[in-house]
């Protein structure tokens, strides 16, 4: 085989491999909108995680659940949805169980790490489908305030 034809075959082969890998990678990633939705949802679950810490801190101090989210942290920095600005849903189920709700853009993925998220590694606690979803937590549960 002449050198030029050999090189042609080699570059064709390598290009095919590269193209296949890129397409597989793109199919895993989904569309850019999907990636953005995942990131926004991460911010939401991160906010809810911080609220859970605040609620546990309130419980430790007062032995009762806070009546509203403002009681935990008047500064309000992570009480609202990052996109819509709506406050997160908060309600009491009973004396020791509370409910935190948010509107999610997409279902959570089996992803254990996303760069920049505050979420520490507690897999499964914040799994959610698309749309409005509430997390019901008993504040006495070990780890309820940690993450």
């Amino acid at each position: 085989m002449s050198p030029r034809r050999g090189i042609r075959w080699l570059s064709a082969g390598v290009s095919v491999v590269v193209l296949a890998a890129v397409l597989a990678g793109l199919s895993v990633l989904g569309s850019p909108m999907h990636q953005r939705a995942l990131r926004l949802d991460t911010i939401r679950t991160s906010n809810l995680g911080q609220l859970a810490i605040g609620i546990s801190g309130y419980w430790a101090a007062h032995k009762a659940l806070p009546p509203t989210l403002e009681s935990i942290d008047p500064s309000d920095s992570h009480h609202r949805d990052p996109v819509s600005g709506q406050p997160y849903g908060y309600g009491l189920v009973d004396a020791t169980t509370y409910r935190l709700c948010a509107q999610f853009d997409t279902a959570s993925e089996q992803e254990s790490y996303r760069a920049g998220a505050f979420i520490p590694p507690n897999l499964g606690r914040w799994k959610h489908p698309q749309g409005m979803h509430c997390f019901v937590t008993d504040v006495r549960q070990a780890g309820a305030g940690i993450y």
Binding site: S11, S15, V18, A21, V22, G25, L26, V28, L29, Q35, L38, Q110, E111, S112, Y113, R114, A115, P121, L123
Partner: peptide
């Protein structure tokens, strides 16, 4: 190793790099 099962951030950067660098190389 649950934190090593296909990190999408890494996939994103690698796909971007290959898409730009490979044609330039060719």
């Amino acid at each position: 190793s649950p934190y090593n099962n296909g990190v999408s951030r890494s996939i994103r950067w690698s796909v971007s790099s290959v898409v730009i660098a490979f044609p330039v190389f060719l």
